[in-house]
Each structure stands twice: as structure tokens, then as C-alpha cells.
């Protein structure tokens, strides 16, 4: 059927379009030439070696990882109780509270970054790890909230009430019944939170400095002036990290696009 064939071709072309720039970067990062070349001219891992030998890249990788991890933990601690309160109780201002906690998903990050820069200036809280952490927590918390909220269904509720009926305390009900039920949401939400923080530029760019830099911001500042195989290697390293993260997710059985029932 021609319509089906056309659809298939469009889908394949789109997949190729999604893959192409990543392949170009990975290829260019392996070139033996001193300038960026694709297709690569000869093969070498020297650019990766050079990246690993540079303490500023190691520091930026460390900052990015610590920041993403800390923001994710903070987001979970803030969002899980919020999700339970929003799903369980009816109280005035519930809709407003939920809208407020979700709004960083649609608000421009660049505006929030600028706002935090100006606001932080009043407290001397700029270009520091806490300043970065606060901003990142605000933008990643909604991912955890949304993922946990979708699991707090009436069916989940029924089990929770059964636990109370059987005489369990709120504390043990939370640890033994509710937490195992919402764990998949916490895991998925945390992964999206971690990734969003790990790749963020728009927010971080206002609060980084030469001494405190994240990988994406460092790349951003570099790419605007120089394009060389070293920068392709740093980019390539982040692509490899992304692929590994997704393979782990796939392995633990997280289905990002559920199969048809």
C-alpha cells in the first residue's frame, strides 16, 4: 500500500535525521587531523585523552554530576510529600499549589535564570554552588511531582486504606505500602530530573564562572569561539554517557513509549 510505504519512509528519514548530528560529532571526535573533520581523517583517541588530562574538564564533569545529583535528591524530598498532599486531600488552594509547583515546566528557563541572578544578588548568592542548586531544584522538581502524581490513583488508595484497616500506623503504611507503589514514579521522575539538570544551560549560564562551571556551559562558551576535535570529544563523552544511561533504563525495564495494548 503506497500510503503505508510513504509513512514508513518518512519515519525512517526522521530517525536518520535524529541520529545524524550525533554520529557526526562522534565521528569528528575520533579524527586524527588537528582540525575538525567529518568524515574523520584517520582514527585516534587522543582528543579524549587530552580531555581527561585537562583538570578543568574533570572539574566541570564533577560539578555537573554533583549538581544534578543534589538537585534530584532535593526535588524528590520536596515533591513526594507535595504529590501525596495534592492527591490525597481536598483543601482550599489545592489547584493553585499544584499549578505553582508545576509551572517551571512551561516558564522560560532563561527568564528564571535571569530572575535568580538578580534576586540572588541581594543576598550575595551568585556564582556559587548553592545558587546553581536552588535554580536547578526549581526546574527539575516538577518532573518528580508529575511522575509520582500519575501513580496516586484510586486503586493505589484502596491498598493504602486496607493497610490502615489492618491496623498499620501511618509511618509503616508509608514505608511498606505507599512507597513501593510510587517507587517507579520516583525513579522515572528522578531520571528526567537528573538529565534536565545535567544538560541545562539556560539557567546555569547566569551562575557559573571560570572556577565553577558545568559541562554544558563550558561547552557552550567554547563552541561559540572555537570548533576543534577536542570539543567534539567532550561532546562525544556526553553522548556516550547518555547512551549508557538509556541502556541502563532499558535494561531495568522502563518503557518510555508504552507498547500498544
Amino acid at each position: 500500500m503506497p500510503a503505508r510505504l510513504l509513512l514508513r519512509l518518512v519515519a525512517w528519514a526522521t530517525l536518520a535525521y535524529l541520529l545524524l548530528p550525533l554520529l557526526v560529532i562522534l565521528g569528528a571526535s575520533l579524527t586524527a587531523s588537528p582540525y575538525l573533520a567529518f568524515p574523520p581523517q584517520g582514527w585516534t583517541l587522543d582528543w579524549y585523552r587530552q580531555m581527561l588530562a585537562d583538570p578543568s574538564y574533570r572539574a566541570a564533569f564533577a560539578t555537573s554530576s554533583q549538581l544534578a545529583l543534589a538537585a534530584t535528591v532535593l526535588a524528590v524530598l520536596l515533591s513526594v510529600p507535595a504529590a501525596l498532599a495534592i492527591a490525597r486531600y481536598r483543601f482550599p488552594g489545592r489547584q493553585a499549589a499544584s499549578a505553582l509547583l508545576m509551572s517551571p515546566l512551561v516558564l522560560p528557563h532563561i527568564v528564571l535564570g535571569a530572575a535568580l541572578l538578580q534576586f540572588g544578588g541581594y543576598f550575595g548568592l551568585v556564582r556559587s554552588f548553592p545558587a546553581l542548586l536552588i535554580g536547578h531544584t526549581v526546574i527539575v522538581a516538577p518532573f518528580v511531582l508529575r511522575a509520582v502524581l500519575t501513580l496516586l490513583t484510586p486503586e493505589q488508595r484502596a491498598l493504602e486504606e486496607a493497610s490502615y484497616d489492618l491496623g498499620a500506623s501511618p509511618w509503616s503504611t508509608f514505608w511498606r505500602v505507599v512507597l513501593p507503589q510510587i517507587r517507579p514514579g520516583i525513579v522515572t521522575g528522578s531520571i528526567f530530573a537528573f538529565i534536565s539538570s545535567w544538560i541545562n544551560v539556560e539557567l546555569s549560564v547566569f551562575n557559573t564562572s571560570t572556577a565553577l562551571n558545568t559541562i554544558p556551559v563550558k561547552l557552550f562558551n567554547y563552541v561559540q569561539y572555537t570548533i576543534d576535535p577536542l570539543i567534539a570529544a567532550v561532546s562525544g563523552a556526553t553522548i556516550v554517557a547518555a547512551v549508557l544511561a538509556i541502556l541502563v533504563l532499558d535494561f531495568i525495564g522502563l518503557d518510555l513509549l508504552p507498547d500498544r495494548k
Partner: peptide, 18 residues
């Protein structure tokens, strides 16, 4: 699905650089 998600897990910088 992995091909679709890998770009989402990489920074805008890296993708634009490509």
C-alpha cells in the same frame, strides 16, 4: 525508541554543535 531518546538526554549544545 532509544534513537529517539538519546538526543533528549544530550545537551542542546551538543546537538546544535552537530
Amino acid at each position: 525508541v532509544i534513537l529517539l531518546v538519546v538526543p533528549m538526554f544530550t545537551s542542546n549544545i551538543v546537538r546544535s554543535f552537530g
